[in-house]
């Protein structure tokens, strides 16, 4: 028992959504934050000037719309990743979150933020290799990608699990790779950056659940 009781399973043909206590809470959190981030006006940053008064930095609207769209995509992808019951789908959601994360900060016109975003992009591109590689290995070894099925097959998947975990770490940009994210955090005028961290943290928890289940 990991996820504290199943409420229901919704099969959309091949795609299966599972509502357990864990996934429902994660789903609700992701959706709530998506709505909240959509509603929030961006903060203004106060920059100290050498002479005269401090300057308020305002963000123009066209820059803002792009980022907000990306933040919403990121939130929806996170919510989907909470519910899905397929390893390949989950990997796809992870990569989508990675793309959206780069998109959120790529509209910021600051050199160090763009640099950090570029590095994060490289990491997440490289990390797709172990992620999908691990999915392929699991498919080759067991013949299925469904988590519900894999739960009952008692196969030793240690190597694949480690690969999958590595891919997830690169895609969400945690632990060994998080240096770029701290730089991305400094972009001015953004509740949207919150989505980067929220998605990555929720996805880590979800990945741990998946790795413990299969």
């Amino acid at each position: 028992m990991i996820d504290g009781g199943i409420f229901g399973i919704v099969p959309f043909g091949d795609i299966i959504f599972k509502y357990s206590m864990f996934s429902t809470i994660g789903f609700v959190i992701a959706i709530t934050f998506t709505i909240l981030v959509y509603l929030t006006k961006p903060e203004k940053q106060l920059e100290a000037q050498k002479f005269g008064e401090d300057k308020l930095i305002d963000i123009p609207l066209h820059e803002l719309k792009n980022r907000r769209y990306m933040a919403i995509v990121c939130g929806i992808a996170t919510a989907g990743a909470m519910l899905t019951q397929d390893i390949f789908d989950f990997a796809l959601f992870l990569t989508l979150v990675g793309i959206a994360n780069i998109g959120i900060v790529s509209a910021v016109k600051r050199e160090h933020v763009l640099n950090a975003s570029f590095q994060y992009g490289l990491t997440s591109i490289i990390a797709t290799l172990p992620l999908f590689g691990a999915s392929a290995l699991i498919l080759a070894k067991t013949g299925t990608l469904s988590i519900l099925e894999l739960h009952h097959l008692n196969k030793n998947l240690l190597f694949e699990k480690i690969l999958y975990g590595l891919g997830m770490a690169g895609e969400t940009g945690v632990a060994p790779y998080y240096a770029a994210k701290a730089e991305m955090f400094r972009a001015p005028g953004s509740p949207y950056i919150l989505m980067i961290h929220l998605s990555s943290l929720l996805l880590i928890v979800r990945t741990v659940e998946i790795l413990l289940t299969i």
């Binding site: 909240l36 981030v37 509603l39 929030t40 006006k41 961006p42 903060e43 203004k44 940053q45 106060l46 308020l56 509740p191 919150l194």
Partner: peptide, 9 residues
């Protein structure tokens, strides 16, 4: 604060 981003704040 005037710099705050509501309602997140």
């Amino acid at each position: 604060p005037i710099t705050a981003g509501n309602p997140l704040y």
